[in-house]
């Protein structure tokens, strides 16, 4: 079972072995620990800032973090551009 809320981070609970390393790894306390199941869970997933520190520390690969954050807090100068324009066709150069 994969637990994912509208956030870049998810945990595959089948892979989680309850080592608690992610609890130290995350600077913003995204992870909590469920004493009953002895597994990590996403306590505050919307606070993930995509630093990938948990990925390096999770020994079983149970945590996934997506590269993109869609956040009102990021201001792109390309908001009005067509996504196709964000890649330049090298043959035109």
């Amino acid at each position: 079972m994969t637990e994912a809320v509208n956030s870049p981070v998810s945990i595959n609970l089948d892979l989680c072995e309850g080592c608690r390393k992610c609890l130290n790894a995350c600077p913003t306390d995204v992870f909590g620990f469920n004493e009953k199941t002895q597994k990590a869970y996403l306590a505050y997933p919307s606070d993930c800032s995509v630093c990938f520190l948990c990925i390096g520390d999770c020994p079983t690969g149970a945590i996934k973090v997506d590269f993109a954050i869609t956040s009102v807090r990021k201001h792109s100068a390309y908001a009005e551009y067509d996504p196709d324009q964000l890649v330049l066709d090298p043959s035109t150069l």
Binding site: F52, I55, G56, L86
Partner: peptide, 28 residues
């Protein structure tokens, strides 16, 4: 390896060795 991931080596974007990709600075 030490950071966990790099977008430049991922398959989420076109190959940066082939295509120039839009970049921008943050400012604040």
């Amino acid at each position: 390896q030490s950071k966990g991931a790099s977008i430049l080596l991922s398959d989420r974007i076109p190959d940066p060795k082939v295509s120039p990709l839009a970049i921008e600075p943050t400012w604040g």
